[in-house]
Design a binder for these strands. Structure first.
Length: 478
RNA sequence: UCCCUAGUAGCUCAGUUGGUUAGAGCGGCGGACUGUUAAUCCGUAGGUCGUAGGUUCAAGUCCUACCUGGGGAGCCA
């Protein structure tokens, strides 16, 4: 008999059909005559109830059907006599595929804290919450590829190992095969990377952007979607040492085209989740509502699904950094001295400033543009005012910066002079600069932190709970 | 990395100004129950109080260091 997925049975199952399922026991309740087994196979958040006539099965077998055990169940689909489900599986044959010792199995049919489940990350997929999170994560990854494919973008695989550390996007992880205790040394007693595997010092990538630009300047529109590594000692609910990033890069796009794409892209993904993941979203939404009940009234936030619909239907507010500084200087918290950090043109905005703009002033996603060039990367297009660059940051409520991007500097001389000012060795970047030497053109791109986006979509609070096996300082378990 | 905070049973927590045999709920185990919905009811076992030092007649409780988690900040996606 062919195994059916529970998702399919709950959707299309006809009473009277002989059916085989395989999955894991969520709960078992029993009485003298009948046992009820809630089965989940990961295909959906919903369980299928298996009904087993106690007298027809071996007592020892029933005893071993504990939470966490893997079973194959063959039987007849029937209309449920109880409330709570339409159909259930009347078991005729139950095979214990793998038991789960109830004294040792850590996942109980009760509410666990997210912290505890994080320590059991290998088993947390078996909970409703993490099942929902990881099905959503998959759907969003799929939707991202679908979106770009429909728009004629090409998926470009940029390297994971890179010799350039020019971008300066944070500390990098060194990749080496040199002996850690006795590396070959140069004359001035430093590790001799010329004798390393690649003949030079190499690291894990912090961004695929620079290589992405090379692809865009021939293929037109590309995107990368791969792992990214930052060796920053960041200990927050929004940072990972290993995370996934989507970086589209488009020839002939100016900053406005870039913003239009970013906004349309985010809204498409939200719409895809609403249309295709409603069971999981519904579960996460009600889970969040339970949590919100413990908070004081004024700190409660919008229902997850309402929030997604709101962002999907709103026009993101676009304004320049300079305008944002004006708004902040005229704000109540500024006048009452409630900001912890100063507000002045030229300084980088702090989270408290971004949060004020997004959550208090506009109450809507915001795209900030045209930042002072001194606080932004070398490759950003310089404005004619000689002070600002064509950068854009998309700011979301609670998450903060979810997208960072810019129009790129396509003028070779301007790019070179900026690199010189910032002490970036142009010789090592010859390949990057060649795009400006040969057939240069206006182009733009941005980076979307995948996990930060999944935080937004799922309403989860900690980035370590939206990636299967989080890598953070002092944590590389599993 | 900085500031704050926490670590007590498998899990979630209580444990008074330091004072005798460390408590509960859930989970586990045993039993009851003709269809349950994280079932219900009765019974029962289960603890080097994060680790290492120190103060004290006496430390789960006070002090120091370290480890780990959480909240906030910085860096950023």
């Amino acid at each position: 008999m062919r195994r059916l997925k529970i998702k399919e049975i709950l959707k299309n199952g006809k009473p009277g059909t002989a059916t085989l399922i395989k999955g894991w026991v969520r709960t078992r309740r029993g009485s003298k005559n009948v046992h009820f087994i809630a089965m989940n196979d990961g295909s959906t958040i919903n369980n299928l109830q298996v009904v087993a006539d106690t007298t027809q099965f071996d007592e020892q077998l029933l005893r071993e059907i504990n939470t966490g055990a893997a079973l194959a169940v063959e039987g007849t689909l029937t209309e449920s006599k109880g409330s709570g489900q339409n159909v259930e599986l009347l078991a005729e044959r139950i095979e214990l595929l793998g038991g789960a010792d109830p004294e040792k199995y850590p996942i109980q049919p009760k509410k666990h804290t997210l912290e505890f489940l994080r320590e059991n990350a290998h088993l947390r997929f078996r909970t409703n919450t993490f099942g929902a999170v990881f099905r959503l994560r998959h759907s969003m990854a799929y939707a991202i590829h679908h979106y770009f494919n429909e728009k004629g973008f090409y998926y470009l695989h940029t390297p994971i190992i890179t010799a350039s550390d020019a971008e300066g996007a944070g500390q990098m992880f060194r990749v080496t095969t040199l002996d850690a205790i006795n590396p070959p040394l140069t004359e001035d007693k430093k590790p001799d990377y010329s004798r390393d595997f690649f003949g030079k010092a190499t690291n894990l990538t912090v961004s695929g952007q620079l290589e992405g630009e090379l692809g865009a300047m021939a293929l037109g529109e590309i995107y990368t979607f791969g792992p990214t590594f930052r060796a920053e000692n960041s200990n927050t609910a929004r940072h990972l040492a290993e995370f996934w990033m989507i970086e589209p890069e488009m020839a002939f796009y100016d900053l406005k085209d870039n913003m239009d794409l970013a906004e349309d892209f985010l809204k498409y993904l939200i719409g895809y989740a609403l249309d295709n993941c409603s069971d999981d979203l519904q579960f996460l939404a009600s889970r969040l509502e339970q949590e919100e009940k413990n908070k004081p009234q004024d700190q409660r936030s919008m229902n997850l699904i309402e929030k997604l619909k709101f962002v999907q239907s709103s026009s993101f507010i676009r304004l320049t950094y300079t305008e944002a500084i004006e708004i902040l200087k005229n704000s109540k918290p500024y006048k009452k001295n409630q900001f912890q950090f100063p507000v002045d043109w030229g300084i980088d905005l702090q989270s408290e400033h971004e949060r004020y703009l997004v959550e208090k002033h506009f109450k809507c996603p915001v795209i900030l543009t045209d930042y002072p060039r001194d606080i932004k990367a070398f490759y950003m297009k310089q404005n004619d005012d000689n002070k600002t660059v064509r950068a854009m940051d998309v700011l979301f409520p609670q998450i903060g910066e979810i997208i960072g991007g810019s129009q790129r500097e396509e003028n070779l001389e301007k790019l070179l002079s900026r690199m010189k000012e910032m002490d970036i060795p142009a010789e090592e970047m010859w390949w990057y600069l060649d795009t400006r030497r040969f057939g240069s053109a206006v182009h733009s791109g941005f980076g979307l932190g995948f996990e930060r986006f999944i935080l937004f979509i799922t309403g989860m609070g900690n980035i370590r709970d939206v990636i299967a096996f989080p890598r953070t300082p002092k944590n590389a378990e599993f």
